[in-house]
Structure formats: structure tokens, C-alpha cells
Computed example of a mutant assay.
Amino acid sequence: MAESTEPVRGLPEVEMREGVLPDGTRMVIAVKRGMPQDEVDLLALKLWQEVPES
């Protein structure tokens, strides 16, 4: 996966990044600029685990 970043307007220390879940699903989340990709993926997993099931 190519690392792509997009700054968040008005928050220069935050960027939008893709996190990849174990099943290959991707989610875009706002993270601290420069965060290593493995930490982005871990944060995405934690957020996904907190979503209540319907």
C-alpha cells in the first residue's frame, strides 16, 4: 500500500491516513502527522473493534 497523506485543514499537525484491518479492509482516519504506518493500522483496528455490531 502506498502511504498517502492529506493534511486536515486548520489542523497542521493532523493528517488523514489509510489504516488496513486484518481482513484487508481499509479505513481512513485522522492521525498525528508522521505517525508510523504500523501504528496507524493498530489504531484503525482498535477503532473498528469499538464499533457496536448491528
Results as ranks from 00 to 15, higher is better:
9 R>K: 14
29 I>C: 05
35 M>F: 01
31 V>H: 04
20 V>K: 13
25 T>I: 08
30 A>E: 05
35 M>L: 14
10 G>Y: 00
8 V>S: 05
46 K>I: 03
50 E>C: 07
26 R>D: 07
5 T>M: 11
39 E>G: 03
52 P>F: 03
35 M>I: 06
48 W>K: 08
15 E>H: 05
49 Q>T: 07
16 M>L: 15
49 Q>H: 07
30 A>Y: 01
54 S>G: 11
27 M>K: 11
4 S>M: 13
51 V>M: 14
22 P>T: 01
45 L>N: 03
51 V>T: 10
15 E>P: 02
16 M>R: 15
16 M>C: 12
24 G>F: 00
28 V>T: 15
20 V>Y: 09
6 E>A: 09
28 V>I: 13
25 T>G: 07
20 V>C: 06
24 G>K: 00
26 R>H: 13
49 Q>W: 04
17 R>M: 12
46 K>H: 01
12 P>M: 04
46 K>A: 04
47 L>T: 02
45 L>Y: 03
45 L>V: 01
3 E>T: 12
42 L>W: 10
27 M>Y: 07
13 E>H: 15
18 E>Y: 11
25 T>K: 14
54 S>Q: 12
50 E>A: 13
16 M>A: 14
21 L>H: 08
6 E>P: 00
51 V>S: 08
32 K>H: 07
2 A>D: 14
40 V>P: 07
11 L>K: 15
54 S>W: 09
50 E>K: 13
37 Q>I: 11
21 L>D: 07
50 E>F: 06
34 G>C: 02
19 G>M: 00
28 V>Q: 10
20 V>F: 11
4 S>V: 12
13 E>I: 13
14 V>N: 12
38 D>R: 08
41 D>W: 07
34 G>S: 01
53 E>R: 14
42 L>Y: 12
3 E>M: 12
11 L>P: 10
8 V>C: 08
47 L>K: 07
